[in-house]
Design a protein around this nucleic acid. Structure first.
Lengths: 368, 368
DNA sequence: TCACTTTAGCAACAGCGTTGCGTTATAGGA
DNA sequence: TCCTATAACGCAACGCTGTTGCTAAAGTGA
């Protein structure tokens, strides 16, 4: 929403973020590999690295001898140089995590929420939980970049407003981002849960994850979209309402009003005890999603799915293999999120990191 | 695919493109409105405008008196300052258009193709048709930025290679972009037909069209995606295979191997003479697409559809209105492409324009 | 010891948007 | 008619970006 005109400061941040992006996914690197990957001159890279060292984001880590010539200084990222707090709000609970610059979860905390909680009740719980979290894992407050909140939509990401929240009376047009920033005295990001979740995957996997989706199966089925190297939210922050994709137009009626939505069919299969069918239906939906978005990575997550994750992964992977034609070059990875139940909270934290140090994406990463 | 590191040249091109983007959609503008819209200082805008005037892209067009003070110089874009050629390749025909900087089609030409034509046969037809086109509408060759080709996939946009072409023997892994550039002595862009098509809509509508799709119904159903202000192609240039979205998972078998694809259902309805049903099915598919991508604009096109476009628009629009919940803020426009049968060819041309003068997208455009 | 190779960094530079300020052209009041 | 306020414009100096040219440093290998 900020003005699009760009000056030198934008240029600096862009290139810095580019280098941080490479540093994040490579265990170590030197000046020449960054220069080759970015197309910047070695001299320019020197200036970037000097800035990042001064900011504490990276540090020298010895030298590398590559045959003849002066050895190159190698650098590595300093994971503990920056932190972010992630918050995952559900109807019954709020989960907080603290992650470092690499997106590793270094502490977590779960707090119950009262029935029909208000914004103020939520924020006081979050405030208290944050204190507990930081007492258990003390870090320099100056290194905490901010706090991200992931919750069910619909919401308005651009303005930080919760438009609605299913079955919660006090949540209509709540300017949560602003309220939270005032209450918690930190920069706050607000986003849909699934979008936060896919940010976690993208942040942790680096440049390889240019196009991917996170499929969340948990009291509803949603998808977080990461397209062309960035979170994609759509025109009204409503992208990824994957559960309400119709798979059987003459099928049973869904709560959303349409017929034969993936969610209805899936939930009926689960209720009928036929989890394999449920997984197979999800597979059909995922292939539909691939046909339109052509992403390279599908990540599965969600409590309802984690109980049978082998089954789901196998069924979805086989659907992708069998139902998508031309599978030789249409390579797609299917996996379960390594973050387990923390994906959303961790992803909310990584949205804060991403806003600060993650703009561009690179085709390839550091060669060799 | 070029290296991502950015220098001062990138900055200049970015800001220049920003201003051209505004100029394209506003009939006239002055320095201060550009400054307000971009966030650049008036002085910086002066430099940009001077560059653009020197390049002939814009020109002064009088002054505007707004009460007291020195009148502001107003500028307007010069549509005839740049041209591009667009080529739409189908199995039987090739269509060429010449468009100006605004994306207006100023000349067109259609040539038949031999059965089972080869790349060389195609290029010789294109070469000849280009001559005819430019003889009929002579323009300074230096003002022609290049030539864009839109054709059915699958293809590899990044490398400019046609991977395959249905029912054409000589089209497997053809490096068409390179071949065409050599043969026609012009910069060449190669993309899927539907992606080219949606580029036409985006280029002509300007900043308002940040997220939109072009639905093409014509010997197959495809969708061109324009997401977050740019063409979206997916990880393997295979996004938008919209016709093979399953709407009835226990439905009739499709040529693609799956069951109940939109395309099978639609074509059967048409074959059975039930066009309203066909349109209704398309509506279900479009709403599915909206649920996942949440775009703000749906544009319909394609010869098979144009015969009944009122019916299709009405049916799709009503599906969007009725089947998408929360229609109050989830605003979506549904329309038929104003370019008619020229969309793809014109869009291919606009991809050339877009590569040169269209990077960023603006939230809003020039106020008042 | 010397030639060679590779890396690192200082210094000067071109070009971007920014800032400061003087100039120009208009409206409106004295 | 003159003067003042106002708004737009543009020259010039500036800070900062990445770039270029060149020198120094630190190794290998004969």
């Amino acid at each position: 929403m900020d003005t699009p005109g760009a000056g030198l400061g934008y240029l600096r941040e862009y290139n810095d973020a580019l280098v941080v992006g490479l540093a994040r996914t490579a265990p170590q690197f030197d000046r020449s590999s960054i220069a080759a990957a970015t197309g910047l001159t070695p001299q320019a890279v020197s200036k970037v690295l000097a800035r990042l060292v001064a900011d504490g984001l990276i540090e020298p880590a010895g030298v590398r001898r590559r045959g003849v010539g002066k050895p190159a200084t190698i650098y590595r990222i300093v994971p503990s140089s920056r932190y972010a707090i992630g918050v995952h709000v559900t109807r019954a609970r709020v989960r907080l995590v603290l992650t470092d610059l690499l997106g590793e979860v270094v502490a977590g905390e779960v707090v119950a929420l009262p029935d029909d909680f208000t914004p103020e009740q939520l924020l006081s719980r979050v405030d208290a939980a944050r204190e507990v979290l930081l007492r258990r894992r003390p870090v320099d407050p100056a290194r905490i970049l901010g706090l991200g909140i992931g919750m069910v939509g619909p919401l308005d990401h651009a303005n930080g407003i919760v438009r609605d929240a299913h079955r919660l009376r006090h949540w209509h047009d709540v300017p949560l981002r602003e309220l939270a920033a005032k209450r918690l005295l930190m920069p706050v990001h607000l986003d849909k849960d699934v979008t936060a979740g896919v940010t976690a995957e993208a942040w942790r996997r680096g440049g390889d994850f240019r196009d991917g989706v996170l499929i969340m199966v948990e009291s509803g089925i949603g998808a977080g979209l990461w397209l062309a190297g960035a979170a994609y939210r759509g025109a009204h922050t409503n992208a990824g309402e994957f559960g309400h994709m119709v798979l059987q137009f003459d099928g049973p009626r869904c709560v959303c009003g349409r017929h034969g939505c993936l969610e209805v069919l899936h939930d009926r299969a689960v209720a009928g005890g036929d989890v394999p069918l449920a997984a197979r239906l999800l597979g059909v939906g995922v292939v539909n999603l691939l046909q339109t978005t052509d992403v390279g990575h599908v990540v599965l997550a969600g409590a309802d799915l984690l109980g049978h994750h082998d089954l789901y992964v196998e069924e979805v992977a086989s659907a992708v293999r069998v139902q998508v034609p031309r599978a030789d070059w249409l390579t797609v990875t299917v996996s379960v999120s390594a973050l387990g139940g923390d994906v959303i909270a961790a992803g909310a934290a990584m949205q804060v990191l991403n806003a600060a140090y993650g703009r561009p994406s690179l085709d390839g990463g550091l060669g060799r």
